[in-house]
Design a protein around this nucleic acid. Structure first.
Lengths: 218, 218
DNA sequence: CGGTTTTTGGACTTGCAGGTCCATTTTTGC
DNA sequence: GCAAAAATGGACCTGCAAGTCCAAAAACCG
């Protein structure tokens, strides 16, 4: 059932998706017409409907998947290696830097609101992204628990859920305010609270905590 | 410059805004046509353009303002009286209950993505809402600091920013997952961390903390 | 009352963006 | 090299939803 695609065909399809994604990032979903995509990617209407027989909806879905994958890729290799506090900080830096650069141009905000309601597939893409994201964070929390850097009392999944919520909200507020303040505050305070959990536990046992050069947020 | 509006006229205008808001909440911004609003509110096209000369854009802006105000109103009187831990919990409950009831139907998500890009006014409305919201939270934090329930070391504005980010992200994830788990986790963990800050400080002074019947989240 | 302004109804126009179709060119695989 | 399949270009169609216009009804106010 998979449509036969020659090498050239695959290249064209990829070019369309990438071009459409760029265009959408730049000007918003509802401002982008098929004609814009054609102009921006040097393709014709025949090509668009050749590669995306269901038209705009199918194209938007492909763009959404493309962007969702990109979001996680942009966080690697940090996200998959949250194995020490410096690693967590490096991840934090990468996130903030990435979104600061992105600024107001959020690829997924529009796609959730636009396609989300009518296309059940878009919903699935976003949900899948969030699920993978949260799991990666939870894995990081569990690793830190295994090394004693985070208290075993912490519910890793719940902590990851809270952290993910903070990130999403921070990005959402970045869209409104244009500043990364909220994202930074959410990341710092949540991570700090995880660090504090270990320190509290340590106090209960030894009355001292290992100095690691980290003195709280900011 | 304010257009003369008779009593009847004002009623009609309000009916249009409320009806459009309901319709948008129910089916999403981009699915609602002016014709739908007309049918749902028992008005004619002439009326729509009589009260909103700039057409759909002006109507959407009015709806956005209406919904933004409602968001804060729904949190009263709790939001303006964050003066004790039970009060904070009551606010927490109200928030979760409200958004659980709302479910996937978010009035502002679409409005930010839709009108946000083209109408600079929509951006301002959302920004204003967030600003008022965060200030209310920050006031609550400061009050708790004045009573010693939150450590004076905490940066109230920054804590409020983080909490607001958690809320926004929690709601955003509610839109994808249909569950309030993220919202609850973000609220609980952030509030707990504020409580913990006071407890830590108390320990440093007296080694005991006043039992107030609250034993952490969940 | 009566003139004026506001409110209302609905037919009509218009532009445009998504989608269809097919003829032509290029690539593929033998 | 040649038939089949895939890729491409672009003219054309179509439906729809925003916006226009005006005439009739109702409300306002001295």
């Amino acid at each position: 059932m998979t449509r036969a695609l020659t090498r050239k065909g695959e290249a064209t399809r990829a070019r369309i998706v990438a071009g459409a994604a760029a265009e959408i990032r730049e000007r918003g979903v509802d401002e982008v017409r098929l004609e814009d995509v054609m102009a921006h990617t040097g393709t014709s209407k025949g090509q668009l409907f050749h590669y995306f027989p269901d038209g705009k909806e199918e194209l938007l879905l492909a763009v959404a998947q493309h962007e969702a994958d990109q979001v996680l890729l942009d966080q690697e290799p940090m996200l998959s290696n949250l194995t020490s506090w410096p690693a967590w900080l490096a991840w934090r830096e990468r996130l903030i830097e990435r979104y600061r650069a992105q600024g107001v141009k959020c690829p997924l905000n529009g796609l959730l609101g636009q396609t989300g309601r009518r296309a059940p597939g878009a919903q699935a893409i976003v949900t899948g992204l969030m699920w993978r994201w949260q799991n990666a964070i939870a894995d990081g929390v569990r690793h830190m628990q295994s090394t004693g850097d985070i208290s075993g009392d912490v519910d890793a999944d719940r902590a990851a859920a809270a952290l993910l919520a903070g990130i999403q909200g921070g990005v959402l507020l970045l869209l409104s305010t244009g500043k990364t303040d909220h994202l930074e505050a959410a990341l710092d305070l949540t991570i700090d609270s995880l660090r504090a959990s270990a320190r509290t536990q340590t106090w209960q046992v030894t009355t001292t905590s290992p100095g690691d050069g980290y003195a709280g947020s900011r």
